[in-house]
């Protein structure tokens, strides 16, 4: 069974200006898919559709066999962890620790389990030392790490990550790559960090102007210099 199944998806924020045009894509359980493409290609829009943040699309979208529609959202969202491109949108509690505990606590886990998961997620992302710091006083990279921790603590089946490596220093970036590789979850990672995509995803989907331009093994797509350059991208640094 496909875990994510998108068929003939078309979406517009405003009538007449289609942002996603007839997209079909399916992802199997445990697969890691890189989503690349120019600014404004529609990567974030596509990820938001999967968690029901962009209602009113045409076509069919199912997650774990459940169609994405208003009534099914709580069920679907329980399976998915979504990391926003903009961390300020993600975090809302007063402290890092509270924010990381928010998801597990909402799912009604016992308090000791909540605490164990929170501490594990903080330790994994290397931000245990800022557990009690107010969100508003974090640096950009710390916010990103905290955003990722808020999702890890929920241990979702599916991870949708929008630019997870943005704002991270090389060491933290490497750490996030290692974490992503350790996780068994199905992953879709939207990023301009093509080297990270190479390290984490076996399959890559290239988007351009709301359409899927190419879909195949990462090794093939991210080595195709002509294809990348046609789509405002460059070869990953290590291949230059």
């Amino acid at each position: 069974m496909r875990q994510i199944e998108i068929r003939n998806l078309t979406f517009a924020y405003m009538k007449g200006a289609d942002i996603l045009k007839d997209i079909s894509l399916s992802v199997s359980p445990g697969e890691s898919v890189g989503l690349v493409g120019a600014n404004g290609a529609g990567k974030s829009t596509l990820l938001k559709i999967l968690v029901g943040l962009n209602p009113g699309f045409a076509g069919s979208v199912t997650v774990g066999g459940i169609p994405v529609e208003k009534g099914t959202l709580p069920k679907i969202r329980q399976k998915i962890g979504y990391v926003f491109q903009d961390s300020d949108s993600q975090l809302f509690m007063t402290t890092v620790g509270e924010d990381v505990a928010f998801g597990p606590r909402n799912y009604g886990l016992s308090e000791s389990e909540v605490r164990a998961r929170t501490d594990r997620a903080l330790a994994e992302t290397g931000i245990t030392h800022i557990k009690d710091r107010p969100i508003m006083r974090l640096s950009g990279g710390e916010k990103k790490l905290a955003s990722i921790a808020t999702i890890l603590s929920m241990e979702p089946e599916i991870l949708l990550l929008d630019e997870p490596s943005i704002a991270l220093d090389p060491k933290n970036r490497r750490n996030i790559i290692n974490i992503l590789n350790r996780l068994q979850a199905t992953k879709i990672i939207a990023s301009h960090d093509l080297d990270m995509i190479m390290d984490t995803c076996s399959r890559t989907v290239l988007m351009g102007d709301g359409k899927i331009i190419a879909d195949g093994p990462t090794d093939k797509i991210l080595r195709d210099k002509a294809l990348l350059e046609e789509n405002s991208l460059e070869l990953p640094l290590r291949l230059q």
Partner: peptide, 23 residues
């Protein structure tokens, strides 16, 4: 921003039946 924050809350299981239990 408030919209996004509310989205982020509901993505993490928040619903208006306030099940928030404080440690």
């Amino acid at each position: 921003r408030a919209n996004d924050v509310f989205a982020s809350m509901s993505l993490r299981g928040y619903s208006s039946d306030f099940r928030y239990r404080k440690s």
